[in-house]
């Protein structure tokens, strides 16, 4: 591993609670006993940091590696290179027992509320699991806590004995959130938590997450393909493309002045309810396969501003103004605050 000079963080004043450096994650490509097995990289070198109580949105299209990032950050899928530290502890180097103990402080909410609950166990038992695993309360105490958690996410505590199939999608997502909150975590990773829900229910869950964050001081990593939701919920946004971060900025600034051509295209392609935009020029083509990424900047094959040099070198994520980072040399050259190459 080459020595990596860690770039300035978005919030240098706050010590990051969760921090990842040079994350890579490969999956075995297809190939049998004697077939050439090659590695497909879902993450191709990602740096990430989350401060205590901060909400960071990770956006990108399917295949950009955002869901893999969520699992690697929680060490549910180990990184093939790089490391994740939580509160200064390297998750990869931690003994199993300590890692399990640490899991109390970081929790996950899944996309599909129909798959994330065990269909055979009452929801109260599932919410109590975390409390009992970490011995946060006695069995009696756990019952009370489950009731409190259900009330907190807006469900009737009397329903603790029901099975998941008795609830609607939105309600199940509330149950999943209650389960994640059961261990009093410091960080909640939410992987597309509203995209499987009905349109009229999505806002309920977004409001709930926002409310919990302000009440509990919860750190939030919000993975989404929906730029509008991210903007509504997050302090900072990270844009990913084909396994790498291409831009990172405070939410309001990212939407006001997107720097990276991909961010710009993504914003332009997201349809708006308020106006018909006839001028938008959709991006050509689709995201290349992670099995065979283009050389240099992965976005250059679709980029309206691509230069011959973009095929040469993998662009680094560099400082681009206060709290902003960008991986696009041609654009960086135009930004006054950026260190010119």
């Amino acid at each position: 591993m080459n020595v990596h000079v860690s770039p300035p963080l978005a919030f240098p004043d706050r010590r990051p609670l969760l921090r990842a450096e040079g994350l890579k994650r490969g999956f075995k490509g297809r190939g049998g006993l004697l077939g050439r097995s090659h590695e497909v990289l879902a993450l191709r070198g990602v740096d990430f940091a989350l401060a205590r109580g901060e909400a960071v949105g990770v956006v990108g299209e399917s295949g950009c590696g955002k869901s893999t990032l969520a699992r690697v950050l929680l060490h549910l899928t180990p990184a093939t290179a790089g490391r994740v530290t939580f509160d200064g502890k390297d998750l990869g180097a931690l003994p199993k027992r300590e890692l399990r103990a640490l899991r109390r402080r970081m929790q996950l909410v899944f996309q599909d509320p129909f798959a994330s609950l065990d269909p055979r166990r009452p929801i109260g038992d599932q919410i109590a699991d975390g409390i009992l695993i970490h011995r946060l309360a006695t069995r009696e105490g756990a019952k009370e806590k489950v009731a409190a958690l259900l009330a907190q996410v807006g469900l009737d505590p009397a329903h603790a004995g029901r099975l998941p199939h008795e609830f609607s999608g939105g309600q199940r997502q509330r149950i999943a959130i209650a389960r994640a909150l059961s261990t009093d975590p410091d960080v909640l990773v939410a992987d597309e938590p509203v995209s499987a829900l009905d349109v009229s229910v999505q806002a309920q869950v977004v409001n709930l997450l926002k409310d919990l964050r302000s009440r509990l001081g919860l750190g939030l990593i919000f993975i989404s393909h929906d730029l509008h939701v991210v903007r509504h919920l997050c302090d900072r946004v990270v844009v990913m493309y084909l396994g790498r971060v291409v831009e990172e900025a405070p939410a309001a600034e990212l939407f006001a002045t997107p720097h990276h051509p991909y961010t710009q295209a993504l914003l332009a392609a997201t349809p708006s309810m308020h106006a018909v935009d006839d001028r938008r020029e959709p991006l050509k083509g689709e995201m290349p396969s992670p099995a065979n990424p283009p050389s240099g900047c992965a976005f250059r094959t679709r980029c309206p501003r691509a230069l011959p040099a973009c095929a040469e070198e993998l662009p680094e994520l560099l400082h681009a103004g206060p709290g902003r980072r960008l991986a696009c040399p041609p654009v960086l050259a135009e930004i006054p605050e950026a260190p010119h190459a």
Partner: peptide
């Protein structure tokens, strides 16, 4: 499955995941 991953994420041991969650299902 997400609900099995959720058990790991909650900090359950492998044997707890195997015999409490995977086996019944």
């Amino acid at each position: 499955l997400d609900y099995v991953t959720a058990q790991t994420a909650l900090g359950a041991t492998s044997s707890r995941v195997l015999f409490r969650t995977v086996l019944p299902n």
